[in-house]
């Protein structure tokens, strides 16, 4: 069991003022059987308009808001303490939809070919998932800047490069071909830096986290923020505003052991 302290901040700088900004944030980690969150807090700037809470059908907590007034930057910061009870497993249920492909995970020729070559030869859900993760890890090269948030699993495997989101999407695609229920997870995993993405697989009673980017099970320094069938179900920040502005995003996170 580990006690962690976390802090996570995203800042958007707009090139011009924007108005009527509506947003949904899945940035509040929630307690489940694996992580227990204590003393959570958040701060949103500028302080204007209204802020409220909502949920989604995947079980995430949302912080919603609407700011009508002109603003040139937007930031949110969350912080708190997390007790990690189990390094990688959590009990729970899994609706059927986690078995099915989404537009981001739907396999094309390359993924099907890769699956054919690397089909696990049987075993438990977890061992088959780990085998696929291992083959994928050996096939791909981690490289940032070559893919975008809407890059599909098939597109990423075609170029054999990508970031944690791409590794997660490809693994989800392979697992779904294999008939395993699985989901996409966004969270914090490192001492400092950006957010991370990994995968959870369901064996009939419990979800186990697999970090495809590092080819290992997740550990007791991983804090989950949200999950869904793929990235587009659970972006940490999603917003819409009026204004012809470009935005630059900076993300900082810090996880320390207490």
């Amino acid at each position: 069991m580990k006690q962690l302290q976390f802090e996570y901040e995203t800042k958007l700088e707009f090139s011009q003022s924007v108005t009527e900004h509506s947003f949904s944030l899945r940035c509040m980690p929630f307690s489940d059987g694996r992580q227990i969150i204590a003393e959570p807090g958040f701060e949103i700037l500028p302080v204007s308009g209204s802020i409220w809470r909502s949920r989604d059908s995947f079980g995430n907590t949302l912080i919603c808001g609407r700011n009508e007034k002109p603003h040139k930057s937007f930031s949110f910061r969350v912080y708190g303490k997390a007790q990690i009870v189990n390094s990688c497993k959590v009990n729970g249920s899994a609706p059927e939809f986690y078995k099915f492909h989404t537009p981001l995970t739907r396999p094309g020729k390359e993924i099907e070919l890769f699956y054919k070559k690397n089909k696990p030869s049987g075993g438990s859900v977890l061992s088959r998932a780990e085998a696929l993760s291992n083959s994928l890890f050996n096939f791909m090269t981690y490289k940032s800047g070559v893919t975008k948030v809407n890059t599909t699993a098939e597109q990423a495997i075609e170029i054999r490069e990508g970031v944690c989101q791409d590794y997660a999407h490809i693994l989800l695609s392979l697992l779904r071909i294999e008939g395993i229920r699985c989901r996409y997870v966004s969270g914090l995993a490192f001492k400092c830096g950006e957010t991370h993405a990994w995968v959870e697989v369901y064996d009939g009673t419990c979800w186990t986290g697999i970090d495809a980017t590092h080819n290992r099970l997740i550990g007791d320094n991983y804090i989950k923020l949200c999950h869904g069938r793929d990235y587009s179900d659970c972006p940490i920040e999603r917003g819409i505003y009026r204004g012809n502005a470009n935005s630059v995003q900076t993300v900082t996170s810090k996880v320390t052991e207490i």
Partner: peptide
């Protein structure tokens, strides 16, 4: 059901 375009997990 689940693979239908009209099914919304949301």
């Amino acid at each position: 059901v689940c693979a239908s375009k009209g099914y919304l997990a949301q």
